[in-house]
């Protein structure tokens, strides 16, 4: 039996093996992916991004708790950086989520960037497809800790959540291009720290000054204290609101089209690069 057939029959190990084959760029992986592709497209994909140490993993852990109470199954892709010198990596996002590891309704996979820029690994989109085919209702993608310009998540997720923490610079940081433009939702985490209100004010002012978005969505801001579970219900509610809005408009279809185009260009890019390097 092929990996794809085993995955569609619910075999966890087959799924994790295909993910490895995808990540390691094994030639058979594409064939297997083709076979599961018709079973994808049902999951709701949430991206969580933000600076290192802002609490992304802890936020993911707490939102998963809510999704599980609603009896939704969850896949998590957590990306951490690869050392540019040794090629090694320490993948530690799981530490904050390990309590979900024995829950059959949750599948967590850690990935290293392996030199990819943009906040995700090259394999992320395909690994999401495997989780989608496994039947996960919700897939959460946690990017590496990002600075200003790593915004690939916007092409991967249906809803992008940008996590910020107080005390990371003055208001000029808030008007620069990049990460602040991609948030459908903002979580001001560690909100019990000094400066949370000011950050919220600055963020609100920045968003109000921004031109009206193409999808007519006004980004929401939530204050959270992930470690204590504060503000998580509100955050999840915000995700659902964004999803509803997305589904109700033709913007969703357009987003899917754009994403497919983007994925195609990514594949083209990497295959071309490999062909040139090999020749």
């Amino acid at each position: 039996m092929s990996l794809a057939e085993e995955i569609l029959r619910g075999d966890i190990r087959a799924a994790s093996r295909l993910m490895r084959d995808i990540d390691d760029r094994m030639p058979n992986a594409m064939e297997e992916l083709k076979k599961i592709y018709p079973k994808t497209g049902n999951a709701y994909i949430i991206g969580i991004t933000g600076p290192p140490g802002s609490g992304k993993s802890t936020l993911v852990d707490k939102t998963v708790e809510i999704f599980r109470k609603e009896e939704k199954t969850v896949g998590i892709v957590a990306v951490d950086p690869t050392s540019p010198f040794t090629g090694g990596a320490i993948l530690g996002d799981r530490i904050r989520m390990q309590r979900h590891s024995i829950d059959d309704g949750v599948f967590i996979r850690s990935l290293a960037t392996r030199g990819n820029l943009g906040g995700l690994s090259r394999s992320t989109n395909d690994i999401i497809k495997v989780m989608d085919a496994m039947g996960k209702d919700i897939i959460i993608v946690e990017t590496v800790g990002v600075g200003q310009d790593e915004v690939d998540i916007v092409n991967t997720a249906h809803t992008s959540v940008v996590v910020l923490v107080p005390g990371q610079g003055d208001d000029i940081q808030a008007i620069k291009a990049g990460i602040l433009e991609i948030g459908d939702i903002f979580a001001i985490n560690k909100c019990e720290r000094e400066g949370a209100d000011r950050l919220e004010g600055e963020l609100r002012a920045t968003l109000e000054m921004s031109p009206k978005r193409e999808d007519d969505w006004t980004p929401l801001i939530f204050k959270t204290e992930a470690l204590l579970g504060k503000g998580i219900f509100e955050l999840v509610y915000g995700m659902y609101r964004h999803r509803e809005k997305l589904m109700a408009s033709d913007h969703f279809e357009r987003k899917i089209l754009e994403r497919t185009k983007w994925e195609f260009l990514c594949i083209l890019d990497s295959e071309l690069r490999d062909t040139i390097v090999e020749s």
Binding site: T82, S83, T86, G87, G88, A89, I90, L91, G92, R94, I95, R96, Q98, S110, A112
Partner: peptide, 12 residues
Amino acid sequence: FRDAGFEVIYTG
């Protein structure tokens, strides 16, 4: 292990 080029998953 990281410095040896392995991918290390640490569970805490």
